[in-house]
């Protein structure tokens, strides 16, 4: 995707998102979304935020994988891998069917950015870490590739890079022998942009926002509507919430 294209899709998406997410439009074409969470270079992520997502499976269409494609493009997860079981997937579409009622859904699944992440607890080196603003990341320079975090993740959200990589996005370091997962597009969020998947979802099934801000759209919806935490029994307090399941 060219830079131009990228920019255009971002602008359209942020305009729709600004409307959808309740960000204030201060003048036509200018929304407060950038100023609301852009972080100046050099400033540390703050505890004052907790980035999260609300995914509405009622709005998510089975067979649509726009979010998955956007993620692959943004993070350059496009390497050819002979064995599909060894291919990295930061976000995937899961089709679920209630065994009792037969009701079916489709939804995107990725790192749930838990407040109590088991991957961070088990990581021997501290490569798996949670930023102050709640984003769970792997420091690709400290990861030794033991895969213990993959064993511990209840969401199967992590992938191990099984072969050498080429053509990376300089803002998204990846590497052979390391574990990786959804970064919530931290490099974009820090610039005040939306995660690529959220931006790509034309159905409005994915809402990104600050769970720590009671006035944010995401917080208000979670306060008012029924939402679900996947594997809530594990008490991990995920930053990604679902509706409709």
């Amino acid at each position: 995707m060219s830079a131009n294209n990228n920019r255009r899709s971002f602008l359209t998406a942020s305009a729709t998102m600004a409307a959808g997410a309740g960000f204030i439009a201060i003048a036509p074409g200018i929304s407060l979304i950038e100023v609301s969470h852009a972080r100046p270079a050099g400033e540390a992520a703050s505890k004052a935020n907790r980035w999260g997502m609300l995914i509405d499976s009622n709005k998510c269409t089975a067979g649509c994988d726009a979010c998955v494609k956007a993620c692959s493009t943004e993070n350059r997860i496009n390497e050819q891998v002979a064995d599909p079981r060894q291919r990295s997937q930061w976000i995937r579409k899961i089709d679920i069917k209630d065994k009792a009622s037969g009701r079916q859904h489709s939804l995107p699944m990725m790192c749930q950015h838990c407040a109590e992440p088991p991957c961070v607890d088990v990581c021997p080196t501290g490569a798996s870490m949670k930023r102050a603003d709640g984003i769970v990341l792997v420091d690709r320079h400290i990861c030794i590739g033991c895969r213990y975090c993959m064993m511990a993740c209840p969401y199967k959200a992590r992938s191990f890079v099984h072969q050498p990589l080429t053509e990376q996005n300089p803002e998204v370091p990846r590497g052979i022998g390391c574990v990786e997962s959804c970064t919530l597009c931290v490099h974009r969020v820090d610039k005040g942009q939306l995660p690529a998947c959220v931006e790509a979802c034309t159905e409005g099934a994915m809402l990104f926002g600050d769970l720590a801000d009671p006035n944010s759209e995401i917080s208000r919806r979670i306060a008012q509507e029924a939402t679900t935490q996947v594997r809530a029994d594990l008490k991990l307090n995920p930053g990604v919430r679902y509706q409709g399941i």
């Binding site: 990581c123 021997p124 080196t125 501290g126 590739g145 033991c146 052979i176 022998g177």
Partner: peptide, 24 residues
């Protein structure tokens, strides 16, 4: 290990909440 060359990293960065860390 995916990065066996980082053995020194493993030895110098120990996360004490990790069972692997205790084993170190």
């Amino acid at each position: 290990l995916g990065r066996a060359d980082r053995i020194m990293v493993a030895a110098t960065h120990v996360n004490i909440t990790s069972v692997f860390g205790w084993n170190m």
